[in-house]
């Protein structure tokens, strides 16, 4: 397991290459979240991510631990950026390596769904109408709750 919270960018290709550098791995599933230039109909110039140093790493480690309890995984990599980002910038990387694709698809989605609702990050957008905090979405809570119902 490897978790990073950082201001710097990351190389998704290099991360995927590292995840598959094990001959017992048969599948790598990865997700990259990026900054959109429009949210809620308004143009977004920058996105600033705040987090809770000390808790963030612990929360991410706990999410990865839960995924590894549910599925047999060879390796998991989570990178989340903080600070000020612009449209097209990468925000988050989740990569999961395992023997078969099914477990990797499920584990990657599980980690993202829990990260969205459990990890202490907050986004603030700068728009033409001023700065505003991004509101949490009910759909994210619902996505995380699916896993509690055991629909994996």
């Amino acid at each position: 397991m490897s978790i990073s919270v950082q201001t710097s960018d990351f190389d998704a290709g290099a991360e995927i290459a590292a995840l598959r550098a094990d001959p017992s791995v048969g599948a790598v599933v990865s997700f990259v979240g990026t900054v959109r230039d429009i949210n809620e109909g308004d143009s977004v110039s920058t996105l600033t991510l705040e987090h809770y140093p000390g808790m963030t790493e612990k929360a991410l480690a706990d999410i990865v631990r839960q995924a590894r309890e549910r599925w047999t995984l060879h390796a998991v990599r989570v990178i989340h950026r903080v600070g000020t980002l612009r449209a097209l910038d990468q925000i988050v990387f989740v990569g999961v390596a395992g023997r078969h694709r099914g477990t990797c698809f499920a584990a990657c989605e599980f980690i993202m769904d829990y990260l969205k609702t459990q990890a202490p990050f907050w986004k603030k957008e700068a728009t033409g109408q001023g700065d505003r905090w991004v509101e949490a979405r009910d759909s994210d809570d619902e996505a995380a709750r699916r896993w509690e119902a055991g629909q994996d």
């Binding site: 809770y52 993202m112 905090w133």
Partner: peptide, 10 residues
Amino acid sequence: VAFFPPVTGG
């Protein structure tokens, strides 16, 4: 103890 709004990362 920390208080904060619902999280919005990812």
